[in-house]
């Protein structure tokens, strides 16, 4: 069970309800496959550094979770198939990254 952080960008043309439904779809996907979701952050609508698919803003969503490596291919497959997602990235976290994200989480939760 390695720890991963997966981030994806949803197209801004979606309505709020569709956005929530899209994000919930991945939350349930993670839970059904026995992943332990550690962090679940959404940065909301954000300006992109360069236009993707002619759109200059996107809805950012970040998941940090523990999963077995086999599940990651399946996750990325569903990312590719979902046309609401315009960009995604899944990265493995080494021990320094895990320590850093913990510190970041406490700082964020402390502040907000």
């Amino acid at each position: 069970m390695n720890q991963y952080e997966s981030m994806f960008i949803l197209t801004p043309v979606l309505s709020d309800e569709q956005l929530r439904e899209a994000v919930d779809r991945y939350r349930t996907l993670l839970k059904d496959n026995g992943c332990e979701v550690i962090n679940d952050e959404s940065w909301g609508l954000r300006k992109l550094a360069y236009p993707i698919q002619k759109k200059s803003t996107g809805f950012y969503q970040l998941f940090e979770f523990k999963a077995d490596p086999a599940f990651i291919d399946q996750l990325e497959l569903t990312y590719r198939r979902d046309e609401r997602i315009i960009r995604f990235g899944t990265f493995r976290q080494d021990k320094h990254a895990i320590a850093y994200s913990e510190k970041r989480r406490t700082k964020l939760s402390g502040k907000s």
Binding site: I9, L48, A49, Y50, R87
Partner: peptide, 13 residues
């Protein structure tokens, strides 16, 4: 390179 991929940073600016 990762932040460029995730459109947090521009490739050329």
């Amino acid at each position: 390179k990762r932040s460029r991929h995730m459109a947090l940073m521009p490739y050329v600016a």
